[in-house]
Amino acid sequence: MAINIKSQWELERMAETGRLHTEIFALLEAHIRPGVSTYELDQIVLEAIHAKGGQAPQIGYRAGGNVPFPSATCMSVDDVVVHGLPSKKPLQEGQLLKVDFLFTYQGFTTDMARTYAIGKVSPEAERLMQVTEEAFWVGLEYLKPGNRLGDVAHAVQEFVEKKHGLWIVREMSGHGVGRELHEDPSVLNYGEPGKGAKLRPGMTLAFEPMVTLFPTNLVILSDGWTATAGRGNLAAHYENTVAVTEEGPRLLTGSPRFAPGVLAR
């Protein structure tokens, strides 16, 4: 495992990338509603990426010999956890939409994902969204020098599964990010404390709890990308790019919670 440790200069460049990335999400949110298609939302993101002078590195990306990914974003609805392909089918009231995309600016890449309620959703969907987001903040507290990735993973798993009775997705994980779209190490959301890579200042990680209502094994659909938790299940996803620093975790995308019990969006 070759972990890419970033210099302070590199961290500042990534922070600028992350700031622009976060602005694109804010712009997108104004357009998310029943009746809009995920294809339209994907095109809004792509236009915003180009307007900011960046690149959409997911377009044409291959993984494990897979077919090239066709779009700027992953748009995953309801039971689809990740890697959903944008569609011209309108979103409907009550659905959950996960938006996930990488953004490259002046040679540096950040990764970010959010889950959105389309109109009014069920109480169980609201709870799933809240627990998934809260799991991110629980795990973030462990992203400090000297801890190990297993400490982060264990904290997330305990919070999601033992405290709230939901399910951590096993087949997908976070990852290093920065100079490349995917770098070492893998950042699991389940595991044992004291295991895994030791956290060091300069590590930059895409940390992304992915949670479903019910225990499941993911299935990849025939398009080679779409990862579903199964009909009748629901999934939520919350991701930011985080730098490990001597002072503790530094958000490179998104924004910190501004009061106890209040979740940042």
Rank of each mutant, 00 (worst) to 15 (best):
A56H: 03
T204Y: 08
M75V: 07
E180L: 14
R231I: 05
Y116W: 15
V99M: 11
L251C: 03
D223N: 02
M112H: 15
I220V: 12
T212Y: 02
G35N: 12
Y190V: 07
E141P: 00
R13T: 02
Q55E: 14
V160M: 09
Q92L: 15
G84P: 06
E183K: 00
I24C: 03
G94V: 08
G94D: 08
E180Q: 07
T110M: 13
L188I: 03
A259W: 06
Q8G: 13
S255P: 01
L221T: 12
E246S: 08
V77K: 07
S122F: 11
E29S: 06
V77A: 09
A197Q: 08
S37M: 09
G191E: 04
Q106G: 04
T253A: 15
T104E: 15
P249H: 12
D78Y: 11
V152H: 15
K162H: 06
V80E: 10
H50Y: 05
A236F: 06
L140S: 00
L128S: 12
M210Q: 13
G18N: 04
E12G: 05
T109N: 10
T73Y: 00
K144W: 02
S7E: 08
V160E: 11
E93W: 11
Q130F: 12
A51P: 00
G35W: 14
G54V: 07
Q8L: 13
M1P: 10
T241I: 12
L218E: 00
L205Q: 04
T204C: 14
M210I: 15
I3E: 03
K195V: 00
E208D: 11
S87G: 05
M172Q: 06
G178E: 11
V77E: 06
T132N: 08
N66R: 07
N217F: 05
A63E: 14
E158R: 14
